[in-house]
Design a protein around this nucleic acid. Structure first.
Lengths: 233, 233
DNA sequence: AGTCGCTTGATTGTCAGCAATCAGCAAGAG
DNA sequence: CTCTTGCTGATTGCTGACAATCAAGCGACT
C-alpha cells in the first residue's frame, strides 16, 4: 500500500491557522510596533468569527508578539530598547542551556547535519544572500536546541526567536561582521560536536553579548535621560 | 493624599479569574496528573459560559499546567520524570540569569529585604512549619527574579515555579536536608548582595543540581528499560 | 479658560446554540 | 471467533447575537 499523506496538516484548528496568518503578517513588518489590531477587521479578512480571532490573538499574546489592553485594544508589542535587551538576554540563557545539553546528547549523524547547515550558512553569505543567511542562522540555532531534547526549552526558544526576528524587522538591526558570525557559529557547533558542554554553553551565551552590551548601554542612557526629564517637568 | 487601592483587582476579566480558580484546584493536588477536565462541568461549577472556561484552559495550557487533545479532551499535564527534568533544568537557567542580573542591580534596601525573607525562611524551618517554608523559599527566589527587572524572565519564572509546585504536590518530592537548604540560600543572597554576578549565577544554577542529577539518572534508567521492553515485544 | 458630567459610537467581553469530531460499542460478514 | 463497519452519545470547535466597557466629543456651569 502506498503511504498516504496525513490530512492532519489541513485539520489544524481554525484558531491556530488564524494565528499563523496574523503572526506572518506581523513578522513581515507590515504592521508597526504598537500598531492596533481590530478583532472585527481581522475576522472579516480571515473569514472566521470574532471568537476564533480572539483565541488566535490570545496565542500571539503568549508568544509575546501582541499585547492586550483590557476592554480597549489589541496592539502589536513594542520593540523598544528594553524589549530588545530582554529578548537577547533571555535568548542567551536559553541557548546556553540548549548548547550544554546538546553537547551531551550529540551523535555523529547530528554532527554531520550541523556542519552541513553551517556550510549552507557560509555559502549564503558568500553569495551575499543575507536574508537567506539569517534564516539559516535561525535554523542552525534551532537544530542545536532540538538536540537538547527538551520540549519546554524548544517551545520557549521558538517564541524568543520569533521576537528576535520581529525586533530585527522593526529596528533594521542586522549583523555587521558576517565573517565573525561564521567563525562564531563554527566554534559553537564544533564545541557541541566535541561534547564539550562547558565550552558550548559559553560560546552560545557569548553569541549575543555584543548586542546585549550595546543595548544595555542605550538602556542606561535612556534611563538617565528620563531622570533629567523627570526633574525638569 | 492617601494612596487608594486600585479597583483593578475586582475588574479582572472573567476568564482570568476562572483560570485562577482552576489553577488553584490543580495546584492543590485534588486532580491527579493526567486527570481529565470537562468544559461543561467546569462552566457549571464556575457559573460562566463554556467559551470563558475555554479561554481559561488555553491560558493554563500556556502555563504548562494542562494539555489539550484536539476535539477530544483537556487533561492535567503529566508529572513524569522527564517533565520534572525539563522543569528543573529550565529553572536553573532562568534563575541563573536572574541572579546574575540581580547582582548588578541590587541596592542596600533590596539586600535588607532579601535577608529579612531569608530569616523568615530559617524561622519557619526551625518551627518545623515546612509547608510555610516552601512558600517562603519560592518568595525568596521570586524576589531575586524581580531584582533582575526583566518582565519576560519574571513571567517565565512564574510559570516554571508553578510547575515545580505542581510536581512537588504530585510526586511528594520534598526537600530533605533543610539545614543545607538554608545555607545554600544564604550563600546565594549574599553573593547577590555583594554584587558578585558570576558567583550568584553559579549558586543559583547549582541550587537544583542534585535534583537534576537524580532525575537524569532515573531518566536514563527508564530509557534503557524502554529499550529492553522494545526488543522483547 | 477650564472642569465636570453626559451622550454616543466604537470595541471588547460573555453567552447560548449549532456543527464537527471522536471513542466506544454493537451488529454483521467472513 | 475475529475483524470490519456503521451507529450513537459525549465532547469539543465555531459562530452570531447581546452585554459591558471605554475614549472622545460636546455642552453647561464655574
Amino acid at each position: 500500500m502506498a503511504k498516504l499523506a496525513s490530512l492532519r496538516a489541513e485539520k489544524r484548528l481554525l484558531d491556530r491557522r488564524a494565528a499563523d496568518q496574523i503572526r506572518a503578517h506581523i513578522l513581515s513588518g507590515v504592521l508597526p510596533a504598537g500598531g492596533r489590531l481590530l478583532e472585527t477587521q481581522l475576522s472579516e479578512e480571515l473569514e472566521v468569527s470574532r471568537g476564533t480571532v480572539r483565541s488566535a490573538l490570545a496565542q500571539l499574546a503568549n508568544e509575546g508578539l501582541v499585547q492586550q489592553v483590557a476592554f480597549t485594544r489589541w496592539e502589536v508589542s513594542g520593540a523598544s530598547v528594553s524589549d530588545a535587551w530582554e529578548i537577547y538576554t533571555l535568548r542567551g540563557a536559553l541557548e546556553g542551556l540548549a548548547a550544554r545539553l546538546a553537547a551531551t546528547n550529540v551523535t555523529e549523524a547530528d554532527g554531520k547535519r550541523l556542519r552541513a547547515v553551517a556550510d549552507q550558512l557560509q555559502q549564503a553569505i558568500r553569495k551575499r544572500r543575507f536574508e537567506e543567511a539569517i534564516e539559516i542562522d535561525f535554523d542552525l540555532h534551532t537544530a542545536i536546541v532540538e538536540l537538547a531534547q527538551h520540549r519546554r526549552l524548544a517551545e520557549q526558544h521558538r517564541f524568543i526567536l520569533q521576537q528576535v526576528r520581529f525586533h530585527m524587522v522593526q529596528s533594521g538591526f542586522f549583523p555587521e561582521d558576517y565573517d565573525e558570525l561564521i567563525a562564531a557559529h563554527k566554534a559553537l557547533i564544533e564545541a557541541v560536536i566535541a561534547g564539550d558542554a562547558d565550552r558550548a554553553e559559553k560560546l552560545a551565551r557569548s553569541h549575543n553579548d555584543s548586542e546585549v552590551k550595546q543595548l544595555a548601554k542605550m538602556l542606561k542612557q535612556n534611563a538617565s535621560m528620563q531622570k533629567v526629564k523627570g526633574r525638569a517637568s
